[in-house]
Amino acid sequence: MTATASAKTIIEAREVHKHFGSFHALKGVSATFSEGQVTAIVGPSGSGKSTFLRTLNRLEAHDTGTIRIDGIELNDDLKHLDAIRREVGMVFQSFNLFSHLSILRNITLAPMRVRKMDKAQAEAKALALLERVGLGNQALKYPVQLSGGQQQRVAIARALAMDPKVLLFDEPTSALDPEMVNEVLGVMRELAHTGITMLAVTHEMGFAREVADRLIFFDHGVILEDTTPENFFTNPDHERAKTFLAQVRHGF
């Protein structure tokens, strides 16, 4: 799915800066993302990929610059923040399932609390989502009883239960044993074709190349390349990107 020129802009980041103490983690990041676009974000460790993703739902507050999601500006206004967090789901490297709640309750909690959905409706929806990620028979288990790959699929179902327009993935497969990576990538691949906007920080270059419409390369807190996966892998513009690719390939 290649984003067409007419697609509506859903995320707009302009000149975003972020410091951690004296450390300058994001140095003027600008990018717009249109609805339905699937973007892979790659780059060396510490380059600011996670920080950028986390500013988009304000798990980190940016210092200067503007971020708009679906036309709403992300700032200290709590109403804006509530509105944005309903539209933006996030999947974490370490799953972060609620360990004291059953799989079913993990998924129904937010729709019931935030969207005020009634219990029966929320459970029906949760079961349908679990079915979709291939875990229909695990609803009554607890997170510790599932494998990493299964937990990450539950985390995806949990995010989807809020019907987000945007899904952010921060290295969703990095904490998994190799044999479980594909079951999660499979779910993500299927999602990519549903029209949801996806931004995925990933080290899975095969996945980026095959599924993403767009590829962003981060380095030292700036976007160094913003191109198509095809272009990036065959013919990167910057020396740093070439070095990065050489290292990644060497890793395989």
Binding site: L59, D82, A159
Partner: peptide, 8 residues
């Protein structure tokens, strides 16, 4: 963080 990201 997961709870906050879900809008709680």
């Amino acid at each position: 963080e997961a709870a906050r990201a879900l809008g709680l």
